[in-house]
Nucleic acid binder design. Structure first.
Length: 191
DNA sequence: CCTGCGATATTCT
DNA sequence: GAATATCGCAGGC
């Protein structure tokens, strides 16, 4: 498969969030390759988006969010979880896409072990931002990585998802700038 | 199916 | 002190 490159990421976060659905997020961590199809994303902009970590400019925590599109922004939340973001737009814009869900593809047994979720089903393995970070072995060491060149993480071109299979909703877990509907999710299978 | 709550650490006010 | 881009479990329907 073809790794996505800078021209894909250096656009508006809302465009990238929409087009990331159906692409394949791959990590090679601890000798294990794991991957999944991206099925849920949210866009966060820079100045003016009061729900965005970048709203007050660069800090030690959000520094990677101001890198050029195509880098990785990983943040720690609720004292327990890491969340994976794809930085978008030009350098300094402070935009990113939070990847909130994947459909497991490769390395499912490894994901199960990392998640401490025995069983045969992939249901619930990586259907949330904290869950997919654990399942894919994503931690703070990947903050600032370049998705175009890093050997540990990449996004590969998958199958585009047509508009009729998408839902667009408000973003989850925020209390500010709730009027923006910047969450994209693949509709449940069937029907 | 749904709702509520505790865990736990960093950042913000 | 309060809030936070979350999750898993308990309990009620």
């Amino acid at each position: 498969m073809n790794r996505l490159h800078h021209h894909f990421y250096r656009r508006d976060a809302r465009t990238v969030a929409r087009e990331l659905l159906g692409q394949v997020l791959v990590t090679i961590v601890g000798g294990s390759r794991t991957s999944g199809i991206i099925v849920e994303t949210e866009a966060y902009l820079g100045e003016g988006d009061q729900a965005s970590h970048s709203r007050n400019g660069p800090t030690d925590r959000n520094r990677a969010m101001f890198m050029a599109g195509g880098h990785v922004y990983v943040y720690f939340i609720y004292g327990m979880y890491y969340c994976f973001n794809v930085v978008t737009g030009p350098e300094g814009s402070g935009e990113a896409v939070l990847v909130r869900g994947i459909e497991p593809l490769e390395g499912i047994e490894v994901m199960r072990q990392r998640r401490e979720r025995p069983g045969n089903s992939t249901a619930g393995l990586a259907d949330g931002p904290g869950k997919l970070a654990i399942a894919l072995g994503i931690g703070p060491e990947l903050n600032g990585a370049d998705l175009a060149t890093d050997h540990r993480i990449s996004i590969e071109g998958g199958t585009a998802v047509p508009d009729e299979r998408l839902l667009v909703t408000p973003r989850i877990g925020i209390t500010k700038s709730v009027e923006h509907h910047w969450r994209w999710i693949c509709a449940p299978p069937g029907r």
